[in-house]
């Protein structure tokens, strides 16, 4: 997972580069929460462009980060959902809670 913080917009961007399963989320969860606490962003965006595999662990991961972002007063968004990632998120109904942002909106 790559992290980038845009000071001006208080935007914290996470680009997930690993397959998302029960094993990998243990690491990226700790890392994400650590970076959120460190930068105290107003917006947190998870970029799924490089995610080649995700199972239900991704749903639990995103719900958990959503709660953590709320706790620190940040708004959580997701972007670049691949077809298979979207399929799994849609099954859980989680996208009713978390907005899908386009890259254009993000860099604007």
């Amino acid at each position: 997972m790559e992290t980038k913080f845009y000071e001006k917009d208080k935007l914290l961007l996470f680009k997930i580069t690993e397959e998302i399963d029960d094993h990998s989320v243990q690491k990226i969860r700790r890392r994400a929460d650590y970076e959120m606490e460190r930068f105290m962003p107003k917006r947190v965006v998870f970029d799924f462009d490089c995610v080649t595999f995700m199972d239900s662990a991704g749903i639990g991961f995103l719900v958990g980060r959503y709660k953590f972002a709320n706790l620190i007063g940040a708004k959580l968004e997701v972007t670049n959902l691949t077809q298979s990632v979207r399929k799994i998120f849609e099954m859980s109904g989680i996208l009713k809670l978390i907005p899908v942002t386009t890259v254009k909106e993000m860099t604007a």
């Binding site: 199972d55 239900s56 749903i59 639990g60 719900v63 958990g64 099954m91 859980s92």
Partner: peptide, 22 residues
């Protein structure tokens, strides 16, 4: 059942069986 999990504290969503079935 969708969303049924015995481990919500471990950030499980209860969607495993639903995903297998679909």
């Amino acid at each position: 059942e969708p969303l049924y999990t015995t481990k919500p504290n471990l950030e499980r969503s209860g969607m495993g069986f639903t995903i297998m079935e679909s």
